[in-house]
Design a protein around this nucleic acid. Sequence first.
DNA 1: TGGTTGGTTCACGTATAGTCGAACCATGAA
DNA 2: TTCATGGTTCGACTATACGTGAACCAACCA
Lengths: 110, 110
Amino acid sequence: MKGFVHPGREDLRIDSVLEALANPIRLRIVKRLAGGEELTCSTTLPDVSPSTASHHWRVLREGGVLWARREGRIILHTLRREDLDARFPGLLDSVLAALDDSGSLTPALP
Amino acid sequence: MKGFVHPGREDLRIDSVLEALANPIRLRIVKRLAGGEELTCSTTLPDVSPSTASHHWRVLREGGVLWARREGRIILHTLRREDLDARFPGLLDSVLAALDDSGSLTPALP
DNA sequence: TGGTTGGTTCACGTATAGTCGAACCATGAA
DNA sequence: TTCATGGTTCGACTATACGTGAACCAACCA
């Protein structure tokens, strides 16, 4: 567990990205990240167990949706906006716009 | 089995649509439909069984991605482009553009 | 009427996603 | 060194997705 595996920009695949996005919990994460915050694992999903949270972060990371980097004891995540926009122009924006419209995927969270 | 159940435009949900799109077989279907063709079930997926094909058509239909209408003995499918563009502007275009770039999801088909 | 064609539905098996607790690892602090 | 914190990994379980063949249905045709 020394550092994270991220697909390169050119390795991003549309079906992997769609797969990563096709989950309400992961969409919540993406929505939060889109605000520009750097999120940690535990503070973002207090309603699921640490192992479940870790699973979802991994799917997003390996799908190429976000970067993970260790900062001391915590792990900070940021959206790979440039890479996603470069490879799939408009995709992220359209999904984020849809998330703004429907409040269904944005329960009250700290 | 008298006619098909389609979600209304306002009932389209981003996670259902992403879920429907997050599958290579269904992406192949969407790509074909985007060409403007009206596709039947069997001619589009000759490499999977009729029941499997029917399953994928159903996921796309119930996710709101396409219209199905009976025309005599066959069922014709068309992309719900207007509805998708209205509810999730840019989503379909970005996915289709990605499908054009990578030939990986477009095996030789009749 | 009976047969054929195009699809669906059902029942089933298999594979994978999602979830969790327990154990473990990495980091920083005492 | 020892401890606490933040995450991951592992093993197990459950739920759902995927895939199939068999049976069925709906429309057309002879």
